[in-house]
Nucleic acid binder design. Structure first.
Lengths: 362, 362
DNA sequence: TTGTATGCGTTATCAG
DNA sequence: CTGATAACGCATACAA
């Protein structure tokens, strides 16, 4: 069969090989490849030649010619954050269909915060765009750097206001209300809320929705039962649990601003002998899969992370060069009822006042 | 100033810009950039020019010229597998320092197994090498495709024998022995083992090490207390728990072949009222971080995933074109004692024979 | 040690 | 509708 040379290793056929074999110019092949106009006869011939040659084009060369880099950047605090992992799945999926690469950067990978790597990517034009997952105020510098470099940026679930960038987020207010209704349906009236960091807009939105939803059901969420944690992680949830359990408020349900906090809380609570949901119903936000592994499995409100990842990616490609217009996508969150919430017990539990241990029936 | 054009947006300086401004040839700049020989005077001049110009080279062009693609492929069953996530951190870290991109592929992403995407990457020469995480027999096709295409492959923790590829793995036999000693130290003598799928070499190695280690301490692990699960995931662990608990063996410790199985097991066991470690000590393998979130936190043997990821990456780059030699790296696993294992109770517990419920002291 | 010329595989421009 | 040809930005024999 007519390989390019008789000799050594068969070289990968190029667009020129195809052109020669089909008896047309390279530019014609290029046009064919990109779906531009070519006559039907030529089109069929090329289709054949490409098939038999097993030709496929060089993305490197194409990128060079088009002035692209062929991969996008994705920055997040910790790439092993379970929330991000779900997101990554969506990104991966979308990227594969664009046959584009990915450069991953955990801003806090080596113990201390450092956005140097990403700044370098931007400066050196290593990426065609940047996805910022859960950006906070400190990530503004990255967004600005991209904007200055004419690179598109899309933020996912930003926890601060970043201007002039596309954003993909969830409706956290509605999510809060969803939780409110769930709890109200179960008969809870004395409820507490543990937020994330003070400045977090997600946390505020969730609280806002919760409070409003509760109010609509005639339930008041007093300020004295609203707390906030220093960070969003499991550890903070544990720390909160210590103080929360030390001074009982007599609430029957606790809403934590995200699943990680809830995980930390539940572990400590469990150790302290709190029975969930009997003694206390617990709710989180995010919908991390591992919430279903605990005892009890955590009731939560799920973000469609995978879909969000896909949309973020798509936005990056679509809005590649269309400056100006800022795209916004907002997804609804979905209640996932598992085991950590239950109906409030008929006579409101006041176990703290009992002087003798109750005898369990059966 | 000698900009390429007077007009619009300042174009990114190229190697030619630098050459012109420094009064040398582009090839000289190229040599400088690649650390080849240039006179000291020229070197200093170039250093200056590059600095003031803010020049940085185009990796796309460089890749084209060198015949590289600029990113590697990473394939795994599920990219959200917690084990893989840890690995990815290491890969990410190493990749950043090579400023190389990444193409991620979950073989089972869309519900059914499909290696088509990766095969396409290989066929189209989209990647410079492939990392296969936890490959099994079915991944042989991928390895072969790479080999045929002259692409380097490194497998991480292969659970089957794949020939002619680099491998980064852990010493699972030693890990099994580590567990054996830990349990023996705690006084356990009646122990059970729940393996992964039958054909799994990891599972067999872990069992082998466990059995040998136990024997060295005078403890026999009888065949009747060795089980195997259909898969490696949480669900399988739960299924196993159902049958394991239905027919009590009277063992005081259970070793599961990985953490995921242990998670599934513990959840069901907890629901069935098994107190761990009082009634049963439980041990897993892998050392997933989330094991510390459970009640009790899971005792396990940790793989240095991050380091493994780094080494795998490095191997890919180093062994880029050196055909023939197969690199092997084996890491030790490290015992992580948490809460799910405890000393066996002084009088061997035979609760199943008790006719009256014991009264708990205090 | 440095410069010249050519190749890498595509795309885009502009005549035909 | 199709064909030359010039970018794209860098690397590297080869010559000087």
């Amino acid at each position: 069969m007519s390989k390019t040379r008789g000799g050594g290793a068969t070289r990968k056929p190029t667009i020129a090989t195809v052109a020669a074999k089909a008896g047309v110019a390279v530019s014609t092949v290029s046009r064919y490849l990109n779906g531009h106009y070519v006559s039907k006869s030529v089109r069929e011939r090329l289709s054949d030649v490409i098939e038999t040659l097993g030709y496929s084009r060089s993305w490197t060369a194409r990128n060079l010619s088009l002035g692209r880099r062929g991969s996008i950047g994705v920055a997040v605090d910790w790439s092993h954050d379970p929330w991000f992992v779900q997101l990554l799945t969506g990104i991966e999926e979308e990227l594969a269909s664009h046959s584009t690469g990915l450069m991953l950067c955990s801003l806090e990978l080596r113990g201390k915060y450092d956005q140097g790597i990403v700044l370098q990517w931007i400066r050196e034009r290593r990426i065609d765009g940047l996805i910022l997952a859960k950006p906070q105020r400190r990530e503004r510098a990255l967004a600005r750097a991209c904007l200055d470099a004419q690179l598109p940026v899309v933020t996912i679930a930003p926890d601060e206001i970043l201007k002039h960038v596309h954003v993909v987020r969830c409706d956290n207010i509605a999510a809060g209300t969803t939780v409110a209704n769930h709890l109200a349906d179960l008969g809870h009236t004395r409820i507490a809320f543990a937020g994330g960091p003070e400045h977090s807009v997600d946390s505020r939105h969730r609280l806002h929705g919760l409070r409003a939803g509760l109010l609509a059901r005639g339930i008041t969420l007093s300020d004295s039962s609203v707390f906030s944690c220093d960070s969003w992680d499991v550890t903070a949830g544990g720390v909160f649990a210590e103080q929360f359990l030390a001074a009982p408020l007599g609430v029957t349900a606790l809403v934590l601003a995200n699943d990680a906090l809830a995980f930390g809380f539940m572990r400590v609570a469990h150790q302290r002998g709190v029975r969930m949901p009997d003694d206390l119903s617990v709710v989180g936000f995010d919908g991390l899969p591992q919430g279903s592994l605990f005892y009890p499995a955590l009731t939560t409100v799920r973000q469609p992370m995978r879909e969000m990842g896909r949309v973020a990616c798509r936005t990056l490609f679509e809005r590649d060069n269309e400056g100006g217009v800022v795209e916004r996508a907002e997804f609804p969150m979905e209640l996932v009822v598992r085991e950590s919430t239950g109906a409030v017990r008929p006579p409101p539990p006041r176990r703290d006042l009992r002087l003798v241990p109750a005898v369990e029936a059966g």
